[in-house]
Amino acid sequence: MSVAIVSDGKYGHRAYEVIKKKFPCEYIILKYRGNFDDIEIEEEILKKLKDYHILITYLRDPDLTYTLLEEISNQKLDKNPFIIVGIWEGEGFKRQVEKFKNVVCPDLLCNLDEDYLQDKLEEYPQLREFLRYFGKPKVNIYLSNNIIEKIEVIRDSPCGGVSKTLKEFLGERMDENTLKRIGLRVQHFCNTGRFRLFSEKECKKVKVGQILLEGINVKKEE
């Protein structure tokens, strides 16, 4: 199973560094010419992208994103790669691009799990493999005398923010304040507030903290 991070060069580097530890992964800067309705993506890049099982896009131009999705959809392939759109603007755009059956625009990449993708898993089994390691966090925290002795990250966020956050808490005493600090600290490692291009009712970074805390399973010594 292989993954390509498709970027305009600004974002996606951290996801590439994390995902390549589990899957063959490449960081690809999308080369194109033109703008708006006249965008032309280099043919060699389009041919290259068809060989990957999953594409994760970090493109700030919505016209470029749509053109890429359309070009891949129009290729005559036995099975198109599944595309996760990491940067998108507005619910209208989301509805438009999710008409492509091989595309999903999650509110957060760390909110992807089997429930979120349930109508895609049968046709795109590579998603199950991806979700073994990345998506909505799954974490076991093991305590000894109420001290965090071991942390097992079963499923990390694609950016690696969950692992980076939790390793700072090894050896600390577990209580409600510690959990609160974990939820706040993960926001420091989260990029979503930087590349969300539209205003939202719920702060994405706050939601990232909530998602992590929901995924933590504390195991006390018997």
Rank of each mutant, 00 (worst) to 15 (best):
S144M: 12
L117Q: 07
Q118L: 02
N177R: 08
N191P: 14
F82R: 08
K136T: 10
F100Q: 01
D119E: 09
K164L: 15
F82G: 08
F130R: 00
L143T: 06
N102C: 09
T178F: 02
V139H: 04
G135P: 00
E89D: 13
N145K: 13
F130I: 02
L117W: 06
R128S: 07
S144A: 09
F100R: 06
L109V: 15
S163M: 11
T178A: 04
K150I: 01
N177Q: 08
C110W: 08
E114I: 02
S157V: 04
K94R: 15
K99R: 15
E176C: 07
G171Q: 07
V162C: 01
V139L: 00
Y124Q: 08
G160C: 02
T192E: 10
K138I: 15
I147V: 10
P137T: 05
E168P: 08
R132Y: 00
I154K: 01
E122G: 09
K101P: 08
L121I: 09
G92F: 12
V103A: 14
F82Q: 11
R173S: 03
K164C: 08
K99C: 03
C190M: 10
L143S: 05
Y124C: 07
Q187S: 13
E129F: 02
D156R: 03
K99D: 07
G92W: 14
L127C: 07
Y124M: 04
V97D: 11
M174F: 15
N177E: 14
Q118G: 06
S157D: 02
I87R: 13
L184M: 11
I182Q: 02
P158M: 00
T178R: 12
S144D: 10
I141W: 00
L108E: 05
P137S: 01
T192N: 10
Y116Q: 03
D156I: 00
V153A: 03
D107E: 14
F134E: 09
G171V: 14
H188L: 13
V104M: 09
E129G: 06
N111K: 14
E129S: 11
N145W: 09
D107L: 14
C105T: 05
G161C: 06
S157G: 03
I141E: 07
R194V: 08
F82T: 01
K164H: 08
D113H: 04
W88M: 10
S163T: 15
L170V: 10
L117I: 04
D175L: 05
L117G: 07
L109I: 12
L108H: 02
V153F: 07
G160Q: 02
L170I: 13
D119G: 01
F169K: 04
V186E: 12
N177V: 12
L179V: 02
Q126D: 02
L109E: 12
I84C: 04
C105I: 05
F169I: 01
E114A: 03
E176W: 06
Y133C: 07
V153R: 01
E98T: 01
R181V: 01
Y142P: 06
P106T: 12
G193I: 08
R185E: 11
I84L: 15
